[in-house]
Design a protein around this nucleic acid. Sequence first.
DNA 1: TTGATTTGTTGGAACGTTCCATTTAATAGA
DNA 2: TCTATTAAATGGAACGTTCCAACAAATCAA
Lengths: 347, 347
Amino acid sequence: MASRPKATILDIAREAGVSKSTVSLVLQGSDLIRPETALKVRKAIEDVGYVYNRGAANLRKAHSNVIGMVINDLTNPFFAEMAVGMERVFQSAGIVPFIANTAENPVRQEEVLKSLMEQGVAGLIVSPARGTTPGAFRRIEMAGLPIVFTMRRLPESRIPVIAPDNHRGAWLATAHLIGKGHHRLAFFGGSSDLVVYHERLGGFREACEALGIAKRDTLVVEGETSRKGGIACLETAFAMAEPPTAALCFNDAVAFGVMLALRKRGLEPGADFAVVGFDDVIEAQHYMPALTSVAVDSAGLGERAAHVMLRMIQSRTTRAEDHIGAVNLVVRDSCGPHRRAGMGDAA
Amino acid sequence: MASRPKATILDIAREAGVSKSTVSLVLQGSDLIRPETALKVRKAIEDVGYVYNRGAANLRKAHSNVIGMVINDLTNPFFAEMAVGMERVFQSAGIVPFIANTAENPVRQEEVLKSLMEQGVAGLIVSPARGTTPGAFRRIEMAGLPIVFTMRRLPESRIPVIAPDNHRGAWLATAHLIGKGHHRLAFFGGSSDLVVYHERLGGFREACEALGIAKRDTLVVEGETSRKGGIACLETAFAMAEPPTAALCFNDAVAFGVMLALRKRGLEPGADFAVVGFDDVIEAQHYMPALTSVAVDSAGLGERAAHVMLRMIQSRTTRAEDHIGAVNLVVRDSCGPHRRAGMGDAA
DNA sequence: TTGATTTGTTGGAACGTTCCATTTAATAGA
DNA sequence: TCTATTAAATGGAACGTTCCAACAAATCAA
């Protein structure tokens, strides 16, 4: 089991009694080779335990078959699903996606991107870490490497983005809440250093305005995008003089936190306080009560991103259209039935 | 922004007015170069927008800085956490882990492994897909590439394994159930093509035997390792003449399914039927009721696996000790208080 | 028979690095 | 002054592949 010096194409050639060029052609599945010769070569390949050296090959071809996907938080099932969607597409195109995690750390992201480029990837799909500086992708753009963003958008960047329609999703959810008879609404969680945050909050605000909710009857509480953050948001809201009766949460995780906090106060999510989430992760439907949430089809977005990338690679361009994915509100039990009249304040 | 031919070390040399060897030395941070020269070179590197070609370098060095981690199911937060643990360790060792997902598909796994090897990884950490054939790793072993398994073990393989103490975990959980006064116990979920299954089931069986539960009072129901599987298991169990009053589940996901199914029948998990899970994923503590589960410290196992791999690479060996990680039972609310006497059957 | 064509195979240069052996320049020792 | 030593920089071969141009053998057209 000692690791003898790795077998190369030349070893195969010697073993099979042909030239290295012939071996190379066999490896590429060329039909210029006589079937019997090919067979002989393939046997030799097995015998010497050869592994193809793609690094050496890329030296000549300058066209690799791997693309890098850089994910900001792999432990978030939402991103994991997206990654899986992409894999499906790439697999059938014969290209291999390597995934790297940045854990929301811009420094780590820098390292990972550098490594991926050095490895000679054909393209990059990135869900940028929070706090990424606008210049972080300059080198990649300079190198003319295809790159697309998913889920998140950078403030001023010309890089194509594949993301859900956050604005519309928030609008729909808010309208649903108002339709249920709520007058005092809150937007919970998220922080303003994320473009996504502004998109969702914008949808919330516009829906409120369009449907006649006064600005003073809306409450916005920033917070971590986690269960913990949700708990904190609710506590903050209930410390107010006139607390809201319903909340749109930045995220399903926040929504779960809010529901937990409600229970802790002896309130029943749905009946006593309406909550809607965003993302519609798998757990949403299994929760008690099942969470009403804005579904964004993360796997579908992943597939779309992969297709865009494929096209960019084929047409050797670094440009592509943005793609805003459709969203839809999945109504479950966390907003209860229509709110009884006479409980709200003046309208 | 057109992609001009990629800059090489020679372009830098020309730009800086030195030889390619000098540039190479600067890139490697050698102290054989006069600081001023190094500075000049580094400036040239910036100017020409150079990206290092690791493939070309590896052609000479035959020692890369990337290792591959092959995961059977990235959407399972349990594995995602493990991956993150590994990343922490590798990062500080200057090694970049590339993650690939196999989605429990042995064919996909084959492809992914091949690709990773071709890419010239320094080592492989694999959580094998279900149904992996014993010979799947022969080529890798033949190539003398360090490899370690995590979480799962292959029937007859000499490859080192880093995994939790499944047997002990199941034993503890079962003893807990029996200590609560249950006499008819079930083991729910999982399938016998997994070594892990036998380990956990073995722990369950031994605990039952050691603590005086007759074999005929135990029920084993195989099933998918998902919520859906859990639901199915419970239905099956309740179709029996004398259904069990408590269950050890293969997996937290199965446990969640079981609790869901109980609720659907109007039964309260904990009070009416005790359930304990395995893995202790983050959601376990947030569920209603909070799930009692066997914690396996997935991130810790990930770190351990990474350390083992590092050592193997350094000492150029392909051998290492197995490592069985400690487990502990986290008691929460899903087993209720001690069971009232007189409800069970004869003992 | 001869030359043209087709089929199958081959040598060699090139890709972008590393690293050894060597050269050149600067400094020290006598 | 000359030689020995050290410091800094360099040229060239090698790594494992691809691919072009060239070649040999077999087949065909005349």
